[in-house]
Amino acid sequence: MACHVNIERGDFRLNVTLSLSESVRWLGIVGPSGAGKSTLMRSLAGLEQSSQITGFTDWAASTDGKSIKTVLVSSQTPLFPALSVSGNLALVASSNQVNSAELRQIIQDFECHSLLNKAVNALSGGEAQRVAIARALLARPSVLLLDESTSAMDTQLRARVLSALQQHTQHTCKVIWVSHDWQDIARYCDEVAVIQHGQQVLQDAPAAALSRAGADQTVNGLTGSILQGPVVEKEADFLVFSIGKHKVVTRAMENPGDRATLLVDARHVLISKVPLAPAQVGYVNRLQVSVTGIATDQHSGLQQLTLQCEDQVLYSLLEVPAARQLSIATGEAVYAYFGAGTLPASQSS
């Protein structure tokens, strides 16, 4: 199902086509600042009067045949200032016939218990965000629109909130999520759409989208790729997942499930022709890869290597003199070294 969103407002023009199939339950949206992501979300929430939308209601309604209810949570979504946190939650719960057991569950899962008696303006950014998400769920949405709604939370809290959100939306609600964190997107989203200059430039599964986007740095300011595989070993802070016969170490914190993902920034991938001990280069991971592409990046003047390990892609950005000294050719087998994450966010929206 194709969903078209069209707005023309003065100089600004948004004309986005999203492919919303039944299998897409979490759709990520990424793109540079000013690309139109927030306007797109406001349109889908029905808050932009001048927008024309087709093909959205079919997807939105296909959950349990419920009536369509879209709820947006963004930085522009205020909590009600005259009410405390518990007042905010209770008002929306009673407006949507949410019983007290459900309300308690949501308060617990989104860690709002210690905030209940606080005034709204006494909350920190991350606290306000989780109250806003909890409150949105109490409105029983069939589509939840999240626009950078977890940006002020620290990594651990964000992981807990997102996994609670995943649980609460599992059978009842679909999610469209604007984020600049590819790692989060890879973990939670079935597909991701890249928006640029008011248009969708690609939509795919996250790993594939990132590698396609990687060819054009301007899309997200980040050249990188996502490695993923089943977890084979777990420790307190770190875990090991496998790519075929190869093993990759990553941090456990953001990987609660039995599959792990690791976003690898191309600027932080080192290359050697001979096998060095990973500790010698200061990174924990070493993968044997084959070079499938060499190109000069137009924007940075760096040499971009495309590397293949089993079915997964890795990129490396090298300075041109270094690349020349290495004299790597396409088809050659080399070693790639990289860290265990968490990687720098590509940009703030």
């Binding site: 522009q76 205020p78 009600f80 200032p81 929306v92 407006s95 949507n96 409150r135 949105a136 109490l138």
Partner: peptide, 15 residues
């Protein structure tokens, strides 16, 4: 945005 949000969250007009 306050009224928009209230409408989006189904808060009835008296409330």
């Amino acid at each position: 945005a306050l009224l928009e949000t209230a409408a989006m969250l189904n808060v009835p007009s008296t409330a």
